[in-house]
Each structure stands twice: as structure tokens, then as C-alpha cells.
Design a binder for these strands. Structure first.
Lengths: 229, 229
DNA sequence: CATACACCTTGAGGCAGATCAAAGTCCGAG
DNA sequence: CTCGGACTTTGATCTGCCTCAAGGTGTATG
């Protein structure tokens, strides 16, 4: 689906610095979309006492509908490092699109894919211990990186320890301890604080009770700029 | 959307006893649906070491597509007590439906609603402590009950402590301890092990850092049998 | 190059929840 | 009505992760 093919769509590119947010627009019909063009963002929610839970980490190509829905949750998209997000609003052509099978199918695929990832993450939070979560996280980030940069072995973490902790339901000190433990074990080769190589994916997979999703799960039918142009 | 309006749909009613399962059918196009007609079931996944995580508790009216998707997860629908599930397969009219805006919109709504609930539950598992989780669970079950039986104050838990624990990312002994604590606090009035009344929803809401979804979030446009007939 | 600040790592202590075990309860079948 | 089995509750102990604190590191700015 090419948003640009829809002449009446309004789209604006937003540059966000780390920590800046785009609030959810509580549309019911999902005619507003946010597309991460560059950088890394996160779908976040918060609790009354200020605790933040990151629901999803969104890399280039990721599309989420404006509602970023969660029952009873206040959600927003937050930049984890400097990024560009395209804010697409299709409300002006709501009636036309509501009869467009291609659009409806694409819309469905977007949400279905997000459901699959949400459920995978839910199960991680529900039953895995802290080491399993961090190891799985590193494997997942490596798969995403490979999807975007095949053949480039070094994965870079574009977010803070606090961000990783809020995604994995842990505390930042715990994430730091586990990363140190993993580095010392040799299971993952760290070049510095934020860059690493998974030299033996099979050895990592052996340590995890759940299948690591391959790069094919993080590929998009189009490159992000192509979606929008 | 009335499945029965689609003449070429195959649908079969399956009666499941507690513990029985319907495996996910790994269809990509979501043309197979499972509809809980009666009773309580759960969308489950498991880990290599046998730990089970319940992804969602499915009451009457709940529709899930056959994939029950979760990236890298093996999922199934498991009966938590005796129930009837309608297994609807629309593959025979795939081409026709792929151009039907009404069907595509309904399909989208199903998945979108499941995404909203999945994200809500994800945040619960990520950041709430055991007492908050159990209390929120009781409130959620009460809301669902009210959606189906307005005016009937008694909510009944149709699943074991182990089931509740696997849904909340806890251990069954922990669930039992917390339920005892809640019963003794008077916050929830238990009639017996499995039936209770939320006499003061405001007091419960006060103890939770997240908004309790009201009954309107658990209503369906049609009663389950109407969907299917 | 020096300084300041944000973030990371590490240490120590405490507690919530898991684990293991034992006793109790409820329900269904004979 | 009794008995057996499944499930629940309660007790005791242990451990993984949180919390608080302190020191270290890396990067950006002047």
C-alpha cells in the first residue's frame, strides 16, 4: 500500500529528539497512521504512579495506527533516539477508503502483525526470567537489524538501559547486571556498551525456551520512504 | 457481520471439556475463525520447558482468527471449563471475501480489539505487582460478567487458580494467597471460592494504577448465537 | 583540554514471589 | 453416605529482582 497514492491524504514529517512524544489520537476508525521513517521510537503507556511500560519498540518501517490502542491505557509514541516519523491522516477520504478492499486488507495486515508481536512480548513478560528476557531481546534486535542491513554483523542498541528495562518489565540496574553477565559469558560479543555481534545464534537459541523470530518477521513489503513517497 | 449470511462458509460446533484444545491453524489470510459460543476458553502458548502462558481469556462472543498469532509462539485455544466453540472456515470464498469491504472491516475490528486487549494485558504483566494484577483481574472479570448479564451482581470464576496464575504471570499459590488477602480485606465480597461481588468498584479502582475497563468494552454487536445462525 | 552531566555499573541489603511440602476442602462417583 | 481425587490453602524457606547508594564512564560543550 502506498499512502502517497491517496491524493487527499495529509502527511507531515515530524522530527523528534530523544524523549519527545506524539500523543495517540483517539480515532476509532484508524485513519491516522504513524510511520517510523528513521531512528527508533517506542509505543509507551504509563501508570498513575508514573511507571512506564514500553509496549513495543518501533524501528524504521513500523506502522502504527493513531490510536496505539490499549484498553484503559494512555499511549504515546516516544522517540528513543533522534528519529523521523511520518504522520499520515486519511480522514478526508474516510468514506472512499471504507470501501477500498486493498486499503482495508493492508490496514488489517498492519494490525494483525502488531497483534502477533504484542502476544509474543506478552508471553515473554509473563513467564521468562530476567536473563531469558534480555537474551531474547538481544536476539530480537539482532534479527531486526539483519532485516534492514543484511550482511552487517554489528547490531547497535539505540536506547538507554532504562528504555530496555521498561520494555522488558525490569529495572535498569537489573538490565545492566544481566548485560554484564551475558558479556562475561561470551555468549554475545560486545564491542562497546551498545554494539554487539551474535556470533553463535544457535548457542543463544539453545538458552531460550522460545523460538527467536528470524529477520523475515521484521521485513516490510516496502522500504519506509517508498511507503510514503 | 453474520457468518451465516455467507453461504459457502463451513462451520462446525465443537463441544470441549475442560482441558481440551483446538490447535491454531496457521493460515495467513485469517479466513478461519473460532467463536466462543458458551463457556470459557483461553488462548494459550507454551515454552520449551512446559511453562504455559495464557494470552487471553475468551468468553462467549469472543472471536479469534485461526492463527491465534504470536511471533515464534505455538498457540492453541484451550477450554477452561466445558464450552462450545464454533469453528468457521471461509476459505472456500476467499476470493469473494477479499473484495468485500464489510467483511474486511469486520475482520479488522476483530483483530484491532484483540490488539487493544493484548497491549492492556502486556502492561499489566510488565509493571504491576501480584496484588494489583489479581485485583485488576477480578475487576475485569466482573466487567465482562456485567456486559453479558446486566444487573446480575455475582461474578463467577470459571477457571482454576492455576489458570488465573498462568494468565497473570504468577504462581497458583501466589494467586491463592492474594485472593485470601483480598477476601480478608473486605475489598471484594466472596460468597464461596469462585463467586464474588464487587460491592465498591470505586474503592477497587482507587487501589489500581490503571483504569478498569467498563462493561462496554466487553460487549459485542451481536449475541454469539446470533453471529452464527 | 577540562568540566559537567547523563547514563552505566557495581555493591549491599531487603522483600515479594517462587518453590517445596503438608494439610484442608469440595465435588463426583459408586 | 463414603471415599477418592483434584484442587485449594497455608506454612516454611529460599532466591531473584528491586531499591538505594556510590563510584565509574562517555560524550558534549565551552
Amino acid at each position: 500500500m502506498r499512502f502517497a497514492d491517496v491524493p487527499a491524504a495529509t502527511q507531515r514529517f515530524v522530527t523528534l529528539s530523544r524523549g519527545e512524544r506524539l500523543e495517540a489520537a483517539d480515532t476509532e476508525n484508524c485513519l491516522r497512521f504513524l510511520v517510523v521513517v528513521e531512528g527508533t521510537a517506542a509505543t509507551c503507556t504509563t501508570f498513575a504512579d508514573g511507571r512506564r511500560q514500553i509496549l513495543g519498540i518501533e524501528g524504521p518501517g513500523e506502522i502504527m495506527c493513531g490510536a496505539m490502542s490499549g484498553l484503559g491505557l494512555q499511549c504515546w509514541l516516544e522517540a528513543l533516539d533522534d528519529c523521523i516519523v511520518c504522520d499520515v491522516n486519511l480522514s478526508a477520504v474516510a468514506r472512499q477508503l471504507s470501501k477500498d478492499p486493498e486499503f482495508l486488507t493492508a490496514n488489517f495486515r498492519i494490525v494483525h502483525r502488531r497483534l502477533a508481536r504484542s502476544q509474543s512480548h506478552l508471553s515473554t513478560l509473563g513467564r521468562l526470567d530476567s536473563q531469558e528476557r534480555v537474551l531474547f531481546f538481544l536476539a530480537e534486535m539482532a534479527s531486526r537489524h539483519t532485516a534492514r542491513n543484511p550482511g552487517a554483523p554489528v547490531t547497535r542498541l539505540d536506547m538507554s538501559r532504562e528504555d530496555i528495562a521498561d520494555y522488558l518489565g525490569l529495572n535498569s540496574e537489573t538490565v545492566s547486571r544481566i548485560l554484564t553477565r551475558i558479556r562475561k559469558s561470551g555468549l554475545v560479543k560486545f564491542l562497546n556498551r551498545n554494539e554487539y555481534v551474535l556470533t553463535d545464534i544457535a548457542a543463544v537459541a539453545k538458552r531460550l525456551p522460545v523460538e527467536i523470530p528470524g529477520p523475515e518477521n521484521f521485513q516490510f513489503p516496502h522500504k519506509p520512504m517508498e511507503v510514503i513517497q
